[in-house]
Design a protein around this nucleic acid. Structure first.
Length: 467
RNA sequence: GCUUGCGUGGUGUAGUGGCCCAUCAUUUCGGGUUUUCAUCCCGGCGACCCGGGUUCGAAUCCCGGCGCGAGCACCA
């Protein structure tokens, strides 16, 4: 028999070091399911190898993806919820601007960076045709002057100039040709206001910060492969060694469809969704609210591993991991949908105890019947076995206390409370009215509704977890 | 168009030249336990994109084809 590898593959090129990993979301909204992969994979390596996990806020865009202040609070909370430990370091890019400016200047001083005043369209021509733009030949002094003009409110305006890394306009890969490192933005940043005018772009900011933080391994989506190549060119200009880099492929979850942070934000504002934890959304707060446990998310991502294949996974895979996490602690309770009353005639136990979970020592639940019980309308009209109680005919006449034949076993509620079960079904929120067995479990308890599935107790009813 | 990456059962995944007529999980089907259509247990079905080549031997190496994805933003 072959040996089967368990868990994540070994981290390459560790050479006895403690790894330093990072996860760098844009705080333009709360974390989503998609983010959880980066958090889980990087977090697991850091935890298992005694290394460090850096949580970095890449908040250098105030225009296209303006930062959301609440996200700086919620992201670390969700990171800890998901990983099971707090990040070892938190870095906020907007508070590290001095460093980035310092390295931008070093780049100009070193002659491998220049300020380019070509329009985006004009530069695109140069990129496509492998020709050098006129700005490329300017000397260091000119570039330093132009750099000052970029930083001067009286100087260049947004769109007038960018800082570029001098690579080679004849590089085979067009994405790498003299790529932009910084641009002018005049929108106020919610954290640092208008203190800065020139803001680094991802490839520059991230590259410099990884160096400053001593990041040893970068694990990220393969859509960032060209980012690695760009950054490697910058590193060699500075004489630095680029971290070991590992990629994963694209993941599609059909049930989630295509959500973007900015689209969700709009839909919440318009009232299409109640909030970021609306059960239909793929945010971590929604998943948490829906009773998806962090250990299930971790097992899910670890099982997918680090292949570069683009994959489509059904949510049932995540649910199966979640069932393993929640079943042992989920007390069994009855919820009767579309309740239908049955008056019992004959002799039967009026009070008694029923197991809450056959595999555990969980305290049993107690029932007390006055004159009848509720059953689901769909079950009515035929002889039934009331689970743990008695056999009845279609009119409620008690036929046997012990189970006498193979008739269907159904759940029932005596007394109980009217309640509502909410089910997130794609873009719809389905609600089912019913009678919920009386109990004293607190809000947040995940229970198993017999013959229905797992649900989590909320303040105003039940929310379906999954089957 | 240029660049770059991927292609193992329905869905994921293990496998880096012989231990592979291919692993494990999930889905599905059948059975068992169970007074839940749940949990748990057992079993079945089911795969190396195609074509060449290298080799005694290829899922694994090489070439070509086909298919799918991503980058080429003054977003991250």
């Amino acid at each position: 028999m072959q040996k089967r590898r368990e868990g994540l593959p070994e981290l390459p090129n560790l050479n006895g070091r403690k790894p330093v990993l990072r996860f760098a979301p844009n705080p333009n909204g709360p974390l989503s399911f998609g983010h959880s992969r980066g958090l889980v994979i990087n977090g697991e390596y850091a935890k298992n190898l005694g290394g460090e996990l850096i949580l970095r806020f890449d908040d250098t865009d105030t225009t296209v993806k303006p930062p959301m202040l609440e996200a700086y609070e919620s992201i670390p909370v969700q990171q800890e919820w998901l990983c099971g430990f707090p990040a070892h370091r938190i870095v906020i890019a907007s508070e590290r601007m001095e460093q980035y400016h310092q390295y931008a200047k070093k780049m100009i001083d070193g002659g491998f960076g220049y300020v380019c005043t070509c329009s985006a369209e004009a530069f695109k021509e140069h990129r496509v045709n492998m020709t050098e733009c006129p700005c490329r030949d300017n000397n260091v002094e000119t570039n330093l002057n132009r750099w000052m003009k970029m930083n001067d409110p009286e100087g260049y305006q947004p769109g007038d100039a960018v800082l570029r890394v001098k690579t080679d306009m004849t590089l085979k890969n067009p994405a790498l040709r003299d790529w932009p490192a910084a641009r002018i933005q005049t929108n106020a940043h919610p954290r640092v206001g208008n203190r800065w005018r020139v803001w680094p772009l991802l490839d520059f900011q991230s590259a410099v910060e990884d160096y400053l933080q001593g990041v040893t391994h970068i694990i990220r989506g393969k859509d960032l492969m060209d980012s690695t190549r760009k950054q490697t060119l910058l590193y060699s200009h500075f004489g630095w060694q680029y971290p070991e880099t590992i990629y994963w492929g694209r993941v599609k979850v059909h049930e989630f469809g295509a959500f973007s942070t900015s689209q969700m934000k709009k839909d919440i504002e318009s009232g299409k969704f109640s909030d970021w934890d609306d059960p239909r959304l793929p945010t971590l707060s929604a998943l948490s609210r829906r009773g998806i446990r962090p250990e299930a998310l971790r097992a899910f991502w670890i099982e997918l591993g680090l292949t570069q294949k683009d994959i489509a996974v059904p949510l049932s895979t995540l649910y199966s991991h979640n069932t393993k996490a929640i079943d042992i602690n989920a007390p069994r309770l009855a919820f009767v949908r579309n309740a239908f009353p049955i008056y019992l005639e004959g002799d039967f136990p009026k009070e008694g105890l029923i197991q809450s979970h056959s595999d555990t020592e969980m305290p049993p639940r107690q029932f007390s019947i006055d004159q009848g019980v509720w059953i689901e309308e769909e079950d009515s009209g035929k002889p039934l076995r009331l689970k743990d109680l008695c056999d009845i005919d279609e009119n409620g006449r008690v036929e046997s206390i012990d189970r006498s034949d193979k008739r269907s076993v159904v759940h029932w509620v005596a007394g109980g409370e009217p309640s509502i079960l909410t089910i997130a079904s794609g873009q719809d929120l389905v609600t089912v009215e019913g009678i919920f067995e009386s109990n004293s479990y607190p809000v947040g308890t995940i229970v198993q509704l017999e013959r229905i599935g797992y649900a989590i107790i909320e303040k105003n009813g039940l929310l379906m977890v999954h089957d």
